[in-house]
Amino acid sequence: MLPIGTDFQQDFFSLFNLPARFQIDSTALEQSYLALQAQVHPDKFAHLPESERRLSMQWTTRVNEGYQTLRSPLNRARYLLSLHGVDTQEDSNTAMPVDFLMQQMEWREALDETRQTKNIAALGEMEQRAQHEMRFLQQQLAVDLDDRHDYAAASGIVRKLKFLEKLAEEIGSAFDELDS
């Protein structure tokens, strides 16, 4: 047989035809995503034999996973680090800078307060601040990953970003809670 082996193991950046960098062209990512979906989506295989339907589901699942990974800055940074053999140690490394931890505690307290006082406006402001902080960390990640190749520093930022994503998620739940 001809040597066209199943390249299911290729990394997501190659799969989406993008350079393996933190800063990516999100339009190019989306275009690749849609082009891939158009080839592999189960709707294109519904009338075909079971084996091809299964293959299509596996591929689409992978394409979706890749898109989720590359689209989210946190997931993308973590994935890029893993390609460089760096474990971000999000569960094991809890040594965070003191000022960062202080800030986190302040935010948690503020979140509890808006929940209790049902202050939707304050919650909205908090969300804005969290978004702003996350964008700032993403800019730092771009520098550490793409320019300085300082993966230890980047891992530290990933851990911070994870804290903030968790906070953003809780702010989202608080919105739902105040709305019911």
């Binding site: 275009q31 690749s32 082009a35 158009a38 592999v40 084996s51 591929w59």
Partner: peptide, 29 residues
């Protein structure tokens, strides 16, 4: 027959995935 065509189906899928990103731009889709 399904079993006999498994490898062939995988190669075809690989080929279409590759072609998706080379030359075929969104306008074609």
């Amino acid at each position: 027959l399904n079993l006999a065509t498994t490898e062939f189906a995988q190669r075809r899928m690989d080929k279409s995935v590759k072609s998706a990103l080379t030359g075929h731009k969104l306008s074609d889709l």
